[in-house]
């Protein structure tokens, strides 16, 4: 799987859209676009998926999900995700204070990992998607290949933000020893989980082909 085959076709060759073809997003077969009555779609004859030229309402949907995620990003970072109480003493931990606690406990590698997964990744996703949305709406011609790469990166790294949530589920399962030690999940955890879910849906609803569309239309 290491070597790749290069297609020698000119990079600015025809697109499915310019040839009037619809690309089945499931089985990748191409079909000539035909007029359909309003509210009806063509369907792939092989896998029965409905055919669309582009993901429907991609920009509006992605904006809505990104804005919702941004709003929830605040409570996710302000409110504690859990409180660890040992022998009656303990204090609530936010995401950031959890990272600081790990640094103080000399667990530097884990601290960096959590910082990356819980703070860098959600920020990168929100900022990256906002940047992609604005650049598409401004019909930008700036480095389309790199913007497509940024999109693929956003798609791939999103899941890693869940580390903190999984750790929390493990801690609450392990530490239920009554008076000695308890771990209480906090409201920040739900907000943070919602941010992860919303940004995953946002990445899925964005259509990277829009990056290339305006470049072709303006040629």
């Amino acid at each position: 799987m290491s070597s790749t085959t290069d297609h020698s076709m000119t990079p600015m060759g025809p697109t499915a859209r310019s040839l009037g073809l619809l690309n089945c997003h499931v089985c990748r077969r191409l079909y000539p676009a035909r007029e359909t009555p309003a509210g009806h779609h063509l369907h792939c004859s092989l896998c029965k998926a409905s055919l669309h030229r582009r993901k429907s309402n991609s920009l509006a949907r992605t904006w809505a999900l990104v804005i919702a995620a941004m709003l929830l990003y605040l409570p996710a970072n302000i409110f504690p995700i859990m409180s660890v109480v040992i022998s009656g003493r303990g204090e609530p931990d936010t995401i950031l204070s959890g990272v600081v606690a790990l640094m103080n406990a000399d667990a530097m590698v884990i601290a960096i990992l959590i910082f990356f997964a819980s703070i860098t990744v959600p920020m990168l996703k929100l900022c990256g998607l906002t940047f992609l949305l604005i650049s598409v709406q401004r019909r930008s011609h700036w480095r389309p290949k790199d913007r497509t790469r940024l999109y693929r990166l956003i798609e791939v790294i999103g899941r890693w933000s869940m580390i903190d949530m999984f750790m929390l589920s493990i801690l609450v399962a392990l530490v239920k020893l009554g008076a000695v030690a308890t771990i209480e999940p906090g409201i920040g955890a739900t907000s943070f989980a919602a941010v992860v879910v919303l940004t995953m849906f946002a990445a899925e609803s964005f259509d990277p082909r829009l990056i290339w569309d305006s470049i072709e239309e303006d040629r």
């Binding site: 690309n23 693929r152 082909r209 290339w212 569309d213």
Partner: peptide, 14 residues
């Protein structure tokens, strides 16, 4: 069309 494939990320025909 059966001999062609479109890129899912940028729509280029190959």
């Amino acid at each position: 069309a059966h001999a062609l494939i479109a890129c899912q990320d940028c729509d280029l025909i190959h």
